[in-house]
Write a protein that binds this DNA or RNA. Structure first.
Length: 207
DNA sequence: GAGGAGATCGTCT
DNA sequence: GACGATCTCCTCT
């Protein structure tokens, strides 16, 4: 089991582009005690708030996106296409409602639990099968399924506090060779290069 | 391996 | 009443 320390709130009180790059290589931790599920963050996207037409915050504050307008470092979870949840963390560039979307994780611990949540049959021999591991959390909706992240349960939670049950930690891993690319699945402001991932990483959702 | 369609519902117009 | 920051399955090549 890795030991990780939570990130400070000030980490998130920056421009979402800086936060996004800095988050690569950190670990997303679900749960408490010994039943932890841990994934390394390998792919994220930045959303800039009012200046970014693709951002949920662009049209102003509503009950849905209220978390984005609150303090940085909190979880913003929303339902996409009526089926899937997606996880963001709020940032605060000069009072604006920016955020970072988590797009893919590399499973580190609690792999069998993740598979169960994803309804993937996993024999002991499969735990190291890269084909199967890749299906666990490579995609924003998949990682929410794998960690059982939902809006009723996790929206607004404090991602700097382990006691919230969903937090981000630094285990000493240092990201190198970060690739910048276009964001996935949006139509507005699609030309902005705000997606970041670890070069050559197997668990990135799209290359 | 690539491409297309369907699933499904909260939120905003 | 329309529309998604998606995933999976199916078909075709």
């Amino acid at each position: 089991m890795v030991s990780a320390r939570p990130l400070a709130r000030s980490f998130f009180a920056r421009d979402p582009r800086q936060v996004a790059r800095s988050l690569l290589g950190k670990v997303l931790v679900r749960g408490a005690g010994t039943r932890l599920r841990v994934g390394r963050i390998v792919e994220v996207e930045a959303y800039l708030g009012a200046a970014d037409a693709a951002a949920h915050a662009a049209a102003g504050e509503t009950t849905r996106n209220a978390v984005l307008f609150g303090p940085p470092g909190h979880a913003y979870v929303y339902l996409s296409y009526g089926l899937h949840y997606c996880l963001n963390v709020s940032c605060m560039p000069s009072g604006d409602a920016g955020c970072v979307l988590f797009r893919a994780l590399e499973p580190v611990a609690g792999i069998k639990q993740m598979a169960r949540s994803r309804e993937i049959e996993l024999a002991a021999a499969d735990v190291r099968d890269p084909q199967i591991l890749r299906r666990l959390a490579s995609g924003p909706a998949r990682l929410c399924q794998a960690l059982e992240i939902t809006r009723p349960r996790d929206n607004g939670g404090d991602m700097t506090a382990p006691k919230s049950g969903l937090w981000i930690g630094d285990d000493g891993f240092r990201a190198e060779n970060i690739v910048t690319a276009l964001r996935v699945g949006i139509t507005k402001s699609a030309e902005l290069p705000l997606r970041y991932y670890l070069a050559g990483n197997e668990f990135v959702s799209r290359r």
